[in-house]
């Protein structure tokens, strides 16, 4: 059906079922106690429908639309990051080139030039941004600008482009197709967020990094790691070319680094004293609030898979 590999199609149906069930639970809760305000939850679930619809449509339409979609996601994330931090007015000219780097980076993805894909931002853009800043000539705040602009490019363009590169890797599991590993990564990362939250709510006692994120606890973290590791072992052979053993390992690293991606973005927000990075996704905040863990899990999972299987 739709030319989608069977297991990936089943995976998407599974995600939609989870979404329908969550929506039904929300509707039931809202009807049974009308005094409580569920607006936030309603917005959250509504946004989930939108996000999942957009991701599924761009993934299934064609490889090109999927790559363009992730390029656009990089653009939104980069723009949001550069808009919340303090920049010097003159930096806009260097930032312009980082925006231009987005289509170039995704072009390397589309022609499957792995060598260029992996060095373009860490090396060429890394060297080029300070050159552009030198030509502008403002030395006051130079170090800060050169560092921040490159970090933004690494987080939002380099990291996210790994999801797109997963799509172009040669297919090893015919039943999962090329979108199987992407679905696996996205689902596991989001499921990890939810598990750590739920375990934290149920058993949370000992704060793990109170200065950065007062709501994160050891109990939530460990509960999430165990759940995601176990579940990954069973889902990975279905959606990726990994076997059950490597599936456990993939889940383990996704869970650990998903946590760190989350708290890295939390630290950014603490530093500049904001609660959300934007208002683009109602009920969730900005695009970086939603992508935080994926910024870490995408490159980590990609290179794990690449090392083990390619």
């Amino acid at each position: 059906m739709f030319g989608i590999a069977q297991n990936s199609l089943n995976g998407m149906v599974g995600i939609l079922i989870i979404l329908v069930v969550s929506t039904l639970i929300y509707l039931y809760k809202q009807n049974s106690n009308k005094q409580i305000d569920y607006t936030e939850l309603r917005l959250r679930i509504k946004s989930w429908w939108w996000m999942i619809a957009i991701v599924f449509i761009s993934l299934t339409f064609s490889l090109e639309t999927a790559i363009i979609f992730f390029a656009f996601l990089s653009f939104l994330a980069l723009k949001e990051f550069l808009s919340i931090i303090q920049i010097r007015h003159v930096d806009r000219r260097a930032i312009f080139w980082v925006y231009l780097a987005i289509p170039v980076q995704y072009y390397w993805v589309s022609i499957e030039w792995y060598g260029m894909f992996i060095i373009f931002i860490p090396i060429f853009l890394f060297l080029f941004i300070p050159i552009r800043l030198v030509i502008i000539g403002e030395t006051n705040g130079f170090i800060n600008s050169a560092s921040v602009i490159h970090w933004a490019a690494m987080l939002t363009v380099f990291s996210i482009s790994h999801i797109a590169y997963l799509l172009t890797l040669p297919i090893q599991n015919e039943l999962a197709g090329n979108i199987g590993p992407v679905l696996f990564l996205l689902f596991m990362t989001q499921f990890n967020d939810v598990s750590q939250y739920v375990f934290g709510k149920l058993f949370g006692k000992n704060k793990i990094i109170p200065k950065v994120s007062p709501n994160k606890t050891w109990e939530g973290f460990i509960g999430g790691v165990i759940t995601v590791t176990l579940l990954s072992g069973f889902i990975a052979p279905y959606l990726t070319s990994l076997d059950i053993f490597y599936g456990f390992m993939a889940g383990f690293i996704i869970s650990i680094f998903g946590f760190f991606g989350d708290v890295v973005i939390s630290s950014v927000k603490r530093d500049i004293n904001i609660k959300d990075t934007g208002t683009l996704i109602p009920g969730h905040g900005g695009i970086l609030d939603r992508l935080d863990s994926i910024l870490y899990t995408a490159p980590i999972f990609f290179h794990f898979l690449y090392y083990v299987k390619y």
Binding site: F75, K79, E80, L82, S83, I84, I87, H89, R92, R93, I95, F96, Y99, G278
Partner: peptide
Amino acid sequence: QGLGNSLPKGEALFVPFN
């Protein structure tokens, strides 16, 4: 706030910011 960075007076280069 922000549009002065996107397209300030006297410059033709447009750079996106929220």
